[in-house]
């Protein structure tokens, strides 16, 4: 899933300065699961904003709303009827959701309440880790299911750098060396011979380097 983290409160306050009626819009997708942008978080943020603005003597009216997904036109249309009542949307979706809202509603200010941080999963409740960099050309077959692009700090494709120490990355002793994990997995699978295969220079066109990406299911385009 896409992981997001709420922006610092002061930054959010600054963004909505000058707006008197706003919608705080949650998303029922990934950010609900990672506990940063769903229904409950909309309520909390809205209360905090009301209190802070009251204290400043500049009260703000807030419509609280959460839709199924902010990255899907079907659900985005659901807020249209409420828009005449507000002059800005504070979206608690990931960056994709914010973009979709902005593209859909011209003339309406749309601000991000979250920083979209990475694609990953939860190790346990409230503990999220990055696992994919969406490079567009999955190499996990060669690396025993552990991604060197997302998990090696240098995205090295042919093995660990000289800074791998006791299973940890040179940048932080809390960060696992991705290549140590790969080697451990290859060994456990009896596939160590794969390590010596030369991984040729990568074609980054499938990554964002090839420009913004799209995926089209032709069979659905009729």
């Amino acid at each position: 899933m896409v992981i997001g983290e709420r922006k610092p409160f002061d930054e959010i306050m600054k963004m909505i300065e000058g707006h008197n009626k706003i919608m705080v819009l949650g998303c029922g997708g990934c950010v609900t699961v990672c506990l940063t942008g769903g229904h409950d978080e909309v309520r909390v943020l809205s209360s905090q904003l009301r209190m802070a603005r009251d204290k400043d003597g500049k009260p703000v009216e807030i419509i609280e709303k959460t839709i199924e997904r902010q990255c899907d036109p079907e659900y985005i249309e659901g807020v249209q009827a409420l828009l005449p009542e507000v002059d800005a949307i504070l979206s608690m979706a990931c960056g994709a959701g914010v973009n979709f809202m902005a593209e859909t509603y011209s003339g309406m200010a749309v601000y991000p309440a979250l920083n979209t941080t990475f694609v990953g999963g939860s190790k346990k409740e409230g503990y999220y880790v990055e696992r994919c960099q969406t490079c567009g050309d999955c190499k996990l077959y060669f690396t025993a299911g552990i991604c060197p692009i997302a998990r090696c700090s240098k995205s090295l494709l042919n093995g660990p750098c000289g800074g791998s120490t006791k299973g940890k990355c040179e940048i932080d002793s809390e960060v696992d060396c991705a290549w140590q994990l790969i080697i451990d997995r290859l060994k456990s699978l009896n596939q160590m011979d794969r390590y010596e295969d030369f991984m040729a220079v990568n074609d980054w066109r499938s990554n964002r380097d090839g420009g913004p990406r799209k995926m089209i299911r032709e069979d659905f385009q009729r």
Partner: peptide
């Protein structure tokens, strides 16, 4: 490959690593 920029005077910079050191040798 190069030390990670975290160690230097511009830890805010974007790193490249388009190639790794072995691919650089090959190049």
């Amino acid at each position: 490959s190069g030390d990670h920029q975290k160690f230097g005077d511009h830890p805010q910079s974007k790193n490249v690593f388009d190639l790794d050191s072995i691919q650089l040798i090959h190049t």
